[in-house]
Amino acid sequence: MKLLAKAHISQRRLIEILRVIDSADKPVGARAISDSLSNRGYDLGERAVRYNLKILDELGFTKKQGYSGRVLTALGSRELNDALVDDRVGFVNTRIEEYMFKTSFDPDTSRGDVIANTSIVDKADSEKVFEILGRAFDAGYTISRRVLILEEGDSLSSLEIPAGSLGVATLCSITIDGMLMKRGIPVNTSFAGVMEIRKKQPIQFTDLIAYAGSSLDPMKMFMGRKVARVVDAIEGGHGLVLANVREVPIAAASQAAHLLEQSNSLGLGGLITIGDPGKPVMGCPVGSGKIGIAFCAGVNGPVAAEEMGVKIKTSPISMLIDYSRTTSLK
């Protein structure tokens, strides 16, 4: 297999592009491939896709069909059939751990990089989006009121903002995990799920997906299934919001609680509860010798905007951004 000569993460990326092309019933272009990869849990912009397509062309796995896009060659089909079946198993957890390690936000100085979810919306809908993002935070269902706004034509990492659109980066709850790690607290992001809200209070998880061994981002899977009812929770106090759980050792419980209190004083909210040692947290299993910490997901704001009819494309755990570049919603 020629792809095995590549670095493993590049191999996974190339194989996933081959899968996208193979699943199409016609030649497919870079933009369509980028959109499909995003739906599968990969954050790869159109420019990066073009670069990888050149590699696949050189390997003889794909070929151009005029201006229509790429198709697989016979060699490419064989390569895809021979690809490792577990090429993406555990990839989501690895990606989370990498972002946690790269997080540099220091609550003592309020400086450093934080993990962000990114959304692209039409400019005409921007005020509506900002309003519901603020309301979602005020209700306790997101992490922060702070956002980074990107104008049309701007680019950041692999995100490119098309004409007539705005990019909105919101803080991801995995930032909290990175902060715990930086304080020397071992942390394991264990589950994503759907949290039932009654009378404005979190009751229990109604659905859970483990991050470990997952081939797709569980949060993105819940978003794709449209199982949340964030607007109902905001407006009526009864609904379903997205949330996740991380585990830390019992010995680090007091240190973790102190950090979360400090973070809350800085405007980083979304904490649902800190569980009891070795006990399930809101119905989510927790390992022996651990405590579970449940947080609302940072994507609940964009999810609420979509529920209100806004056309919005959101990518969870999308990139790192400099906290000092963010501004607070009014």
Rank of each mutant, 00 (worst) to 15 (best):
R183F: 11
F130E: 11
Q65V: 15
D25H: 15
A297E: 12
E46V: 08
V28F: 04
G267A: 04
A32L: 01
G270E: 13
M282Y: 14
R19S: 13
K200A: 15
G224W: 02
Y42F: 15
S165P: 00
P316N: 04
G289H: 12
K226D: 15
R31A: 05
A48V: 10
R325P: 00
I291K: 00
D322W: 01
K311H: 09
L216P: 04
G275E: 03
D106A: 03
G239A: 08
E46K: 07
A32G: 00
R88F: 05
T189C: 07
A163C: 07
D113I: 00
R31P: 01
V248P: 07
A136E: 01
E58Y: 01
R229T: 05
A83W: 10
S157C: 07
V28N: 05
N39I: 14
I120G: 01
N117C: 02
G237K: 13
A139E: 00
A169L: 14
P202K: 02
T314V: 12
V49A: 04
V20S: 12
I209T: 08
Q11F: 13
L133T: 02
L208A: 01
Y211N: 09
S38T: 02
V28Q: 06
T327P: 03
I312H: 06
G224H: 04
A169Y: 06
G184R: 03
R225L: 14
A253I: 15
P162L: 12
G237S: 13
K199G: 07
L150S: 08
G29T: 04
A5S: 14
V114I: 13
G178I: 09
G45C: 11
L72M: 03
S315P: 00
K220F: 13
K330Y: 08
A294Y: 04
L72E: 02
K220P: 00
P302G: 10
I317A: 02
I115C: 02
M282S: 09
I143R: 00
D22K: 08
Q262A: 14
M179V: 12
R225Y: 10
A124M: 07
E306V: 11
G309S: 02
T103F: 06
A74E: 15
T94C: 03
G193H: 04
S144G: 10
T142E: 07
L37Y: 00
E98W: 05
M1W: 06
S144K: 08
L271E: 13
G298C: 09
I17H: 13
T62F: 05
L4G: 08
L166P: 01
G193E: 05
A253N: 07
A210M: 07
M223F: 11
T94E: 13
A163F: 14
Q262Y: 07
L266Y: 08
G287N: 14
E247C: 09
T94R: 05
N188F: 09
G298S: 06
I143T: 13
